[in-house]
């Protein structure tokens, strides 16, 4: 017969794992001022994370805009409401698809890059070398990457949505022959800066925190073996994706 305490063991382990991640998050956040004091590494990381993801995000946004417009046009034309196309596509992009798909693409591209970089630093003892040099790896390695990831996400989501709108414009105006004035005025009429654009940006910021934290945590605590680094990289993308989808549901129910 199991001890009564054993029944709660998985719950306790889950709470402990969450506690370790929140502690990691708290330390990363408290180190942000020190990163801003020496901004060079943060700027390098922001440039790196942005540059590795921007092409993927831009192309992704463009195609999502193209496909979305085709689908919406087909549905709206049945009701003679194609004049709402611009507004509808932009709302979908700003509120949902921009933040969520950007975060998923970021987790697959930049997140895995962060996790494998830190995992390899652990495996090749570069993190140990910093420790024995009396250099805090959380301050020197984790905090600049955390801040860069957190800020890169809204910027990339903005690019994703802008490219989506461009794709929608190309299909709607150039291919379907909609009036450009109607397209843009529908967008202006339907989309609110505060409740749509800003809420989308807040979502992206929160996804940025989650994605960066998970990738950095998994990489930093990777087992120092080839298998450990591979596992950390995989875990970072799986956990990030699940977290983004769960957070999206939570945030959408709170915001809209």
């Amino acid at each position: 017969m199991k001890r009564p305490g054993a029944l709660f063991q998985p719950v306790l382990e889950l709470l402990a794992a969450l506690g370790r991640r929140f502690h990691f998050l708290a330390v990363s956040v408290t180190l942000i001022p020190s990163v801003l004091g020496r901004p060079r590494s943060f700027i390098e990381q922001l440039f790196y994370l942005g540059s590795v993801s921007v092409i993927l995000i831009a192309v992704g946004g463009l195609f999502v805009g193209l496909v979305l417009t085709l689908q919406f046009y087909s549905a709206l034309s049945r009701f003679g409401a194609t004049s709402s196309l611009g507004g509808l596509v932009t709302l979908a992009l700003l509120r949902e698809l921009g933040p969520v798909l950007t975060a998923l693409l970021f987790a697959g591209r930049a997140g895995t890059s962060l996790a494998s970089e830190l995992g390899l630093m652990r495996a090749t003892r570069q993190i140990d070398a910093m420790e024995v040099m009396a250099v805090d790896p959380m301050r020197r390695v984790v905090a600049p990457r955390f801040l860069a990831g957190l800020l890169a996400m809204p910027l990339l989501a903005g690019i994703f949505s802008a490219m989506g709108v461009l794709g929608s414009y190309l299909i709607g105006i150039k291919m379907m022959g909609l009036d450009p004035g109607v397209f843009w005025s529908s967008m202006r009429h339907e989309v609110s800066f505060h409740s749509d654009f800003m809420n989308g940006m807040v979502k992206s910021l929160i996804f940025g925190v989650a994605c960066s934290l998970i990738s950095l945590y998994e990489g930093f605590h990777a087992r120092p073996t080839a298998e450990g680094v591979g596992r950390a990289t995989t875990r970072s993308v799986v956990i990030s994706s699940m977290t983004i989808l769960a957070l999206d549901f939570l945030l959408t129910s709170l915001m809209f």
Partner: peptide
């Protein structure tokens, strides 16, 4: 960390920052 500033460690594989 204050004590470690008085130490130097040579790791087996160097552990250089790549």
């Amino acid at each position: 960390f204050r004590l470690r500033r008085r130490m130097g460690v040579l790791f087996q594989d160097g552990a250089l920052f790549t």
